[in-house]
Design a binder for these strands. Structure first.
Lengths: 254, 254
DNA sequence: TGAATAGTGTCTATAAGACAATATCCC
DNA sequence: GGGATATTGTCTTATAGACACTATTCA
């Protein structure tokens, strides 16, 4: 790696940004690479799952990485994340939200890479539809060892329960996605992104419990969600269940 | 601007990130510039205030911009934000938190700039201490035209109440900082960052009201904050007030 | 003593949790 | 009818808001 040429140092508060920017020649000095990484989350069998791709080259060869890619000069950040989902998982029209930008100088041993991480939410059916490369990718189960929004690293396990070693700082990014999703569940309608268009209140509760990692009170969950006014009864009920069928609801778009 | 050389296109999901990254030569194609912008917030006279610097060159000449600067190859993002605060405002040891990364291709007309915005919190005394350039900078009062966490643009006004035109998308960044601060106030101890080391419960309430833009119930604010266990009585009281002096508290670090 | 704000106690309204009772489906 | 879960209603408990009352300082 060559010695980076630096922008001129500011000597103190008397030099303002505009002068600084003006003196800047885009070709003048070394810049970081900018990438996006996508944490694709879906609930399944009582746990959150995510898509990981196996690295076949150094560094972190053999480890598992979040889908990601370089940001092009003519696309926005979220646009880049949507493209990554399309190219690497065959998914379109997915809920996407920026998470956090990681930019420690040593997070990638090859060169300086600043990565803008994103969270993508789908229901389990769409995750199953994702076109992923055989052997080189896995839908991993996420084990969260902390409660509430404490945050921290999480473990990713393959379908046989083996812990998957993660590349770079992707364990932190995964943990952050879970933390953020837990935080958003209470006051924003993200829970609906994790379910198909129509669902019962109990299914919605199960998804909330999966995300939060704890049991919820059925009565108050029901009251609280109906009180939000975000739900709309479809008028239909479950079919072919061996008990009283529950009413189906959809997310009210208005 | 030259036509950007692009990284090779991924043809589909079967090409994973590791192969993509491996084929990447850091000198191979054009990359965005990466900067940090800092929204420095402090409460004063019932409103939030922030530091803005006047741009003396095109683009956005004459408009007001957040303090910012390029990220160096050997420093982290938050580190860069701390440096900007030090160089442009003479402030050290300030609470800093990443906000959001803006990267629309056309947000700066000169070249592609991805900016990682940060929020910095100080009390009004420290904001007054900030060493800013005469004429080229201003501590602007922020007027928030929306309630709660609705979000949106905000207006910045100079001490005489004149609206300050903002550079680039800095109005959005400012609005996002206010929204984020409102959201954090309830469940995290950020309120203390906006006050000197010792304060009365009523002063803390006033700061909360300033941030939230609405009046709070005195009784329940008192109960709620004392119940958090984050406060510690200093044993001292206010001096030289023409009414019963209030007990002083400090933020309990533990 | 009076003005002003600090701090305490109590009542009420609201929301969450617990739990019982009834409803509706399949077998 | 029996088994299972859905849905409704009621009771209890925790918390926020309202408000009255007492406390402490300075002028």
């Amino acid at each position: 790696m060559t010695t980076p040429k630096r922008p001129p140092l500011n000597s103190g508060p008397e030099i303002d940004e505009s002068a600084f920017l003006q003196s800047y020649d885009p070709g003048d000095f070394e810049r970081p690479s900018v990438t996006v990484d996508v944490v694709l989350l879906a609930p399944s069998e009582g746990a959150l799952h995510t898509l990981l791709l196996k690295r076949t080259e150094h560094p972190s060869r053999g480890r598992w990485a979040l889908p990601g890619g370089f940001v092009r000069m003519d696309e926005g950040l979220e646009e880049a994340a949507a493209r990554v989902l399309r190219e690497k998982a065959g998914l379109r029209g997915v809920f996407l939200e920026q998470l956090f930008t990681f930019g420690e100088p040593d997070r990638d041993p090859r060169t300086r890479i600043v990565t803008v991480s994103h969270m993508a939410l789908v229901d389990r059916e769409r995750l199953a539809e994702a076109e992923v490369a055989e052997g080189a990718s896995v839908v991993a189960r996420i084990d969260v060892p902390w409660l509430g929004e404490a945050g921290g690293e999480v473990e990713a396990k393959d379908p046989k329960g083996r812990v998957l070693p993660l590349a770079f700082d992707h364990g932190s990014i995964l943990g952050l996605a879970v933390k953020r999703l837990r935080g958003k569940l209470d006051y924003s309608p993200v829970g609906f992104e994790l379910l198909p268009g129509e669902f019962t209140l109990f299914e919605l509760q199960k998804v909330h419990e999966t995300v939060l990692g704890r049991k919820l009170n059925k009565d108050s969950f029901r009251r609280r969600l109906l009180a939000t006014g975000l739900l709309e009864a479809t008028g239909e009920s479950q079919q072919d269940v061996d008990h009283r069928p529950a009413a189906l609801y959809r997310f009210k778009r208005s």
